[in-house]
Design a protein around this nucleic acid. Sequence first.
DNA 1: TATCGATGGTTGTACGTACAAGCGAAGGCG
DNA 2: CGCCTTCGCTTGTACGTACAACCATCGATA
Lengths: 362, 362
Amino acid sequence: MNNRRIPKYIQLKKELLSWFESGKLQRGQQVPSENEIAEQFGMSRQTVRQTFGELEKEGWLERIQGKGTFARHPQRREAEQAKTIGIITTYISDYIFPHIVRGAEAELRSQGYRLLLSSTDNTKEKEMESLQLMTSQPLSGLIIEPTKSAEGNPNLAYFLELQEKGIPYLMINEKYRELECACLKVDDEAGGYKAVQYLLEMGHTQIAGFFKRDDLQGVNRLKGFLAAHKAAGMSASPKRVVTYTTEEKNSLPYRQALQMLGEGENRPTAFVCYNDELAVLLMEAVAESGLQVPEDVSIIGFDDSSLATASGTKLTTLTHPKTEMGQAAASQLIAMIEQGKTARDTIYEPELIVRDSVAKRN
Amino acid sequence: MNNRRIPKYIQLKKELLSWFESGKLQRGQQVPSENEIAEQFGMSRQTVRQTFGELEKEGWLERIQGKGTFARHPQRREAEQAKTIGIITTYISDYIFPHIVRGAEAELRSQGYRLLLSSTDNTKEKEMESLQLMTSQPLSGLIIEPTKSAEGNPNLAYFLELQEKGIPYLMINEKYRELECACLKVDDEAGGYKAVQYLLEMGHTQIAGFFKRDDLQGVNRLKGFLAAHKAAGMSASPKRVVTYTTEEKNSLPYRQALQMLGEGENRPTAFVCYNDELAVLLMEAVAESGLQVPEDVSIIGFDDSSLATASGTKLTTLTHPKTEMGQAAASQLIAMIEQGKTARDTIYEPELIVRDSVAKRN
DNA sequence: TATCGATGGTTGTACGTACAAGCGAAGGCG
DNA sequence: CGCCTTCGCTTGTACGTACAACCATCGATA
């Protein structure tokens, strides 16, 4: 119509593609026969065949000899057929992350999916890199562990692109506040609460807390820490609450712990640590101060990692369903991909594991 | 010719594809014009166009209006463009493997490659599954950590298929004896040798060794263990050498250690352990026997893992270039893919790290 | 009732024509 | 010598015909 310069078969192609976009052609629906189209558009059957041929190669149509031509949505199929799921995690080698990946990998492999793995080293730039790399080729779905979740998210545009492309995704451990997205996580606030509650029961009143502040896990554990104090009619001394960032994790809490322990009679009698990794580090600080765990200082960690039992004094800690969570994330994501289900948040309740690093206080 | 049932345009397609295979059509070379082909094969130009159209969509031909039709080789480009590398490892979450994966991932990401990860849980069946899954879609290259390398390889056919498909691959930690393949590994025999040599220098003469026998790493560490005894004019007592399989790793060595430690004056004064994981386990066996490390029993581990420093008594151990090895494997593989280089074996020399688990013996 | 065959509709194969559009080289013109 | 036109080739678009292969349905037959 508009322009005689545009070949008819291209014009027809565009017309048909617009039918897909507008929903006029639903998946599985039969398309008018070649002869009908030819008559409707005033062109020969051969020209229609040329258009149909291209659309078939590109996956929009399926032609069955003797039956007819049928619509099918190619994007979906392409992503499904990719049978590849990406996991973007903050760290690969450290701490509990390998266990999460392992749970996911086992589930994915058993369902015939391939696992793409990438880490952000907890920097936003690498998170962007990873997102770009992963989506550069067909992808069925994505599991993301947010990087510095407390600090907002400059890569928002990439996540919105995922939604546009119809690539389902899930978050684990935490979610970005800006994004509507299902998340599998531990109830960190309850964890912080339980830790303090247990220490109070054991007779401790001078409890220090060390929490990471650039991810929401740390923030929430601190919330629980404060809430438990409040519920017991106490207030946690600001001096006894140390917050730190990822970059400071190996120095600042250690220094602060040494300083607190040097305060003689005023020193705290228990440490609540952001995670087991920090707990092991602070155990060394206690040793360096000439004190003993748990006789002089009790310590509680988080996540029940392998470090908790490798150490000399085995750590009392709160559970994290590492492998189980990875497995659940994978299976939920597959359900989203294959059955189009919408995922809901899954919250795991942390349990206290009593080992040897907390002693009774009289 | 043969069968009238095969459509002419398919016959022509096969003929042209055979031209590519035989080298009759080189990349960039001009293909006879549609009219020429039509005349040669006794068919109409339209039929030739149908064939050419398909071959163009599939990437074999390039048609330029007014100039002609030209050949191009698609297969190579496809594998290169995949920019995806697989790693098949025995375990994902445990021990040093996360560090190897991390080194590889960092390198791959910086070079714009995606990382596919899969584990075998040290079973041959899952190794096969993983190989099938990974090669089910375009793959640029593969890094494999052999599963039970001492036991031969029933999946040989799959590896030969890799060679046929032109997918380069590397092995890490060990190689299958049946395969000609470059390998990055630690000189495990030298490691076993150094461990014993150091213990002898420290005055130990009653040295027990615990080695895994279903992978070649264990076998080679044992070799070094025996060689060092021989070089010192001693012979290792068969009673003091325990070998075990993956399935037995949590029970058999522990039991055997307890038994040896119960022999009173005759008990060994030092343990050489297959790796740090076992070393930590046997430290518990020592504690259960009412003895102390290193005062009563000295222990040496392998691999300098995170367990080595997490434990109460820090382990003396031999180094393993975990992260570095992963990084090197990735960069060598990329060189093989992009420059067609042939890789050579890389052997790392293990170094002894002296910590607190070995004491002098008078 | 069950089975077979005819029938009309669909896409697949194969050939044909005609002209358009684009490239490159040969040849003519200034 | 340099530029432009022309010409012959290529592939691209568009239409047409004819028949084959295949599918679903209906109706006749056993």
